[in-house]
Structure formats: structure tokens, C-alpha cells
């Protein structure tokens, strides 16, 4: 199986990565190599094996007490933002 130019464009769009026309074939080639590498997984016999999403087995989620521990730090947190106005983060118009 091999990824086409169109596939790369679709993936880049899903990931919201702007690629130049020149970059597309470069990524197509390297992604195809990676896909070939991970294709080795096909050979593993995994029938009945439960997927492992955490490296430590048996641990469970701790529950936090329902307490408000944060105060307003907007001014500090917005220092890293490129564009703010009246406390709002600005983006080009969202069309619904």
C-alpha cells in the first residue's frame, strides 16, 4: 500500500499543516517508508491480545476533590498570545 499525493494532502489538511507543492512528494516518500516499516506489525500474532494504552498495568484514575483552586490570571496567561482584545483571543472570523 502506498500513499499518493492526494493522500498526503488529505492528511496534511486533517492535521492543519500547510505544505508547499514541493514538500508534498518529499513527505509522500518518507511517509511511505515509515508505513512500510510499521507494516512489519502485520506479522505479529495478536489474536486475543488486549491493546495496551498505558505502560503501567492496573493503575486507575485518581479522582480530584471538587474544589476551586485557581484564580484569575488572565493578564499573565495572555502575554503569550499574538492577538487579544478586551480579554478575548482573536482569530479570523468563524463562519458557522
Amino acid at each position: 500500500m502506498s500513499l499518493s499525493r492526494r493522500d498526503i494532502e488529505n492528511i496534511a489538511h486533517l492535521a492543519r499543516l500547510g505544505l508547499s507543492d514541493a514538500e508534498v512528494p518529499v513527505y509522500a516518500e518518507s511517509l511511505n517508508r515509515i508505513i512500510a516499516l510499521v507494516g512489519e506489525l502485520d506479522h505479529a500474532a495478536t489474536e486475543g491480545v488486549l491493546p495496551m494504552s498505558h505502560p503501567l498495568p492496573g493503575l486507575t484514575q485518581r479522582l480530584r476533590a471538587d474544589e476551586v483552586t485557581e484564580s484569575d490570571q488572565r493578564e499573565l496567561y495572555q502575554r503569550n498570545a499574538a492577538q487579544v482584545m478586551a480579554g478575548l483571543y482573536l482569530v479570523p472570523k468563524v463562519i458557522e
Partner: peptide, 26 residues
């Protein structure tokens, strides 16, 4: 990012992501 987006995308999740998590268990 693109590799990850691809292996999680519809139609490939089972073949790649789930499969990898099973091999991880092995």
C-alpha cells in the same frame, strides 16, 4: 504529526494503532 494523523484516521485505526497497542502488550 502526519504519520500519527494517518494511523489514527478512519479505516486505518484498527490496522495500525490498535494493532500496535496489541503488539505493545506482547
Amino acid at each position: 504529526i502526519m504519520t500519527g494523523t494517518y494511523v489514527l484516521s478512519a479505516g486505518y485505526y484498527d490496522a495500525y494503532y490498535l494493532k500496535a497497542q496489541r503488539v505493545r502488550a506482547l
